[in-house]
C-alpha cells in the first residue's frame, strides 16, 4: 500500500499503533522508498541538531547529500564558510537515490523543528527523526517522535545557491596545529570584541602560536608554547602572521564549544581552516569546518 499524503500516512500509523515508539517511524514509508531521493532516520535527533547548531550563524544553509552523508554549508559575506559533515554512519538508516541531492533551506526553521520536543529533553527520552526529501521543488519532511507523539514538519526548500570554493588544498598548507579545544575555548569566549581583527601568528620559533587582538583598551596576546600539553600536533614551517575579521571568526565559537579537538591550518595565501572534531552523545565523531579569508596583508611590524 502506498500513501501519497504523508499526513495521512502518519495519522494512519498513529491509529494503528498508538503505543508506537521507534518502530512507528521505521515501519512507515518503507513502501515508498523509491519516491524519495533522500531518506534518513536516526534514534537521537540531537546527534544531528547539535552539529547543525555549530554552524548556525546565518539563517540559510545549503544541504548537499551523497551516499556518504550530508554536508550542510553556511556562508557569510563571501569571506567565511562553515561546513558540517554528518556521515551516513551517524544515521540508523540513510538512503540517497540519486548521485547527489542539493537544496537550500532555512536553517533556523530546521533547527526549531528538530527541537520541537524541547532542546534539552529529559534524560532517558530520545527524540527520533525521519527525514525525507522527494526532490527538487518538494519540501523537506521531518517526522519527529518522542514517547509515541509524532510531529510532522514540512519545510519548504529553496533553489540551491552556488557555494564558495576556497580552494583550500592540503598540499598548500604551510602551518598546521592541532589543539585540544579546551585550550581555545576560554580564549574565544573572551575575545576582545572591540578589536576589529583577530591576528593569528604561527611560527616555528617563538611565540609559536599567538592570538592577538587590538581593541579600545589596548592589545592582548595569548601565547601557546609548542610543547604545551594542549598541543596535539605542531607542524609550522614558516612564520605567518595573518589577520581575520573577528566578527567572522566569532561564530566558530559555537563549534569550538562542542568540539574536543581543533585543527588550525593556514595555506600559502593566508587562508584559514579550522576543523573541529565533535563527539556526539553516542561517541561517534563528526566534523565541522570553517574557512576564512585573511583580512589584509599585515604590516611587517607587530
Amino acid at each position: 500500500m502506498v500513501f501519497r499524503d504523508p499526513w495521512e500516512q502518519v495519522l494512519t500509523s498513529l491509529g494503528s499503533n498508538v503505543q508506537g515508539t521507534m518502530p512507528l517511524l521505521t515501519q512507515q514509508i518503507e513502501a515508498d522508498y523509491d519516491q524519495y531521493s533522500l531518506v534518513a532516520s536516526l534514534d537521537n535527533v540531537r546527534n544531528f541538531s547539535t552539529i547543525l547548531k555549530a554552524i548556525h550563524f546565518q539563517d540559510h544553509a545549503t544541504c548537499f547529500a551523497t551516499r556518504n552523508g550530508i554536508k550542510v554549508t553556511v556562508e557569510k559575506a563571501k569571506c567565511v564558510q562553515a561546513n558540517a559533515f554528518i556521515q551516513a554512519g551517524i544515521f540508523q538508516e540513510f538512503m540517497v537515490h540519486e548521485e547527489s541531492v542539493t537544496f537550500r533551506i532555512n536553517l533556523t526553521v530546521l533547527l526549531d523543528c528538530l527541537s520541537i520536543f524541547g532542546s534539552s529533553p529529559m534524560p532517558g527520552t530520545l527524540t527520533a527523526l525521519r527525514m525525507c526529501y522527494q526532490g527538487y521543488g518538494y519540501p523537506l519532511m521531518l517526522f519527529l517522535e518522542e514517547g509515541g507523539v509524532v510531529t510532522v514538519c514540512k519545510i519548504n526548500t529553496q533553489e540551491p545557491e552556488e557555494t564558495l570554493d576556497f580552494d583550500f588544498c592540503s598540499t598548500n598548507v604551510i602551518n598546521k596545529i592541532i589543539l585540544q579545544s579546551e585550550g581555545l575555548r576560554e580564549a574565544f569566549s573572551e575575545l576582545d570584541m572591540t578589536s576589529e581583527v583577530l591576528q593569528i601568528t604561527m611560527s616555528p620559533d617563538k611565540p609559536y602560536f599567538r592570538l592577538s587582538t587590538f581593541g579600545n583598551a589596548g592589545s592582548s596576546h595569548l601565547d601557546y608554547p609548542k610543547d604545551s600539553d594542549l598541543m596535539e600536533a605542531f607542524h609550522c614551517n614558516q612564520t605567518q602572521i595573518n589577520r581575520y575579521k573577528i566578527s567572522l571568526l566569532k561564530p566558530s565559537t559555537k563549534a569550538l564549544v562542542l568540539s574536543c579537538k581543533v585543527s588550525i591550518r593556514t595555506d600559502n595565501r593566508g587562508f584559514l581552516s579550522l576543523q573541529y572534531m565533535i563527539r556526539n552523545e553516542d561517541g561517534q565523531i563528526s566534523f565541522v569546518e570553517y574557512y576564512c579569508c585573511p583580512d589584509e596583508v599585515p604590516e611587517s611590524e607587530s
Partner: peptide
C-alpha cells in the same frame, strides 16, 4: 599548560 596571556 604554559599558556600565557598578555594584556597591554
Amino acid at each position: 599548560y604554559g599558556v600565557r596571556k598578555i594584556h597591554n
